[in-house]
């Protein structure tokens, strides 16, 4: 699906906001992603997965961090250029139980899908939640809500987001989490300890994004493999074999 780029601007250090024309052909659940073809056919070859950071009548929004060749090329695209999207794909965040204490916990670029989730929680579910986000430094902050932790202490809580959120978690908490694997792993062990619920969005290298290549699997607790692209990317943390990640 070739869609027009409306905006592609740097909103924090090395972090870009990409807005794409919304063709009004589908709905998107927070946590779902698109496979984005960066260039013409052969280089870079594979599509790149990006979560939806906003979804409005007039645009689909993605927030991405420049980490390698593909995202570098993407950052040079201009409004009016076309970009090829496949999706929306995967299972997003689901089952919001209203009597639970809802916590959004994100780290770095993994916070992007929470911007859309916030919108859905406020406007569709009309429920309250608390948000806790971690960054390395102040320069990387690209959101304007939630409590912030920075590793270097340049803004908000000094330290990592798991330390900041730890005392908020109890057995009635429902956490939505996305971020670096080591952050998620610590959070998962914490959740086991506090006996709470958590839906966690995972990353993995993907070739197809549609469940056929079997390249994106992660190990589950029943000694099986699950595909991040179609069985996830959002999983119940109790299904994941965290020790293998």
């Amino acid at each position: 699906m070739e869609l027009k780029i409306l905006e592609n601007i740097e909103i924090a250090s090395n972090i870009y906001s990409l807005k794409i024309d919304n063709p009004a052909l589908f709905d998107v659940v927070p946590g779902q992603f698109f496979m984005v073809k960066i260039n013409g056919f052969d280089y870079p070859l594979l599509r790149r997965p990006f979560s939806v950071a906003s979804f409005e009548d007039d645009h689909i929004g993605i927030i991405y961090k420049v980490v390698g060749e593909g995202t570098k090329i993407l950052s040079d695209k201009k409004p009016g250029d076309f970009i090829d999207l496949l999706g929306p794909l995967g299972n997003g965040f689901g089952d919001v139980e209203k009597d639970k204490k809802i916590l959004l916990v994100g780290g770095g670029i993994g916070i992007a899908p929470f911007i859309y989730l916030k919108n859905v929680l406020e406007n569709d579910y009309k429920i309250s939640y608390k948000a806790f986000f971690g960054f390395n430094t102040k320069d990387e902050i690209y959101i304007d809500f939630g409590e912030i932790a920075t590793i270097d202490g340049s803004y908000g809580f000094e330290g990592n987001v798991v330390d900041m959120v730890e005392n908020e978690i109890d057995n009635n908490s429902l956490i939505f989490a996305c971020g670096p694997t080591i952050m998620l792993k610590r959070l998962a062990y914490l959740c086991y300890e506090k006996n709470c619920d958590m839906q966690v969005s995972l990353e993995s290298r993907m070739a197809c994004g549609i469940g056929v290549c079997l390249g994106c699997v992660i190990e589950t607790n029943d000694k099986d493999f699950k595909r991040v692209c179609v069985d996830g990317p959002v999983f119940d943390y109790k299904d994941i074999a965290w020790q293998t990640l």
Partner: peptide, 23 residues
């Protein structure tokens, strides 16, 4: 067959390597 442990794929210039393990 369950196949190999991840990581199973990696992109290369104009190609990719896979070791799915015939899942």
């Amino acid at each position: 067959k369950k196949g190999n442990k991840p990581p199973r794929i990696v992109e290369t210039p104009c190609g990719m390597l896979n070791a799915i393990g015939l899942q």
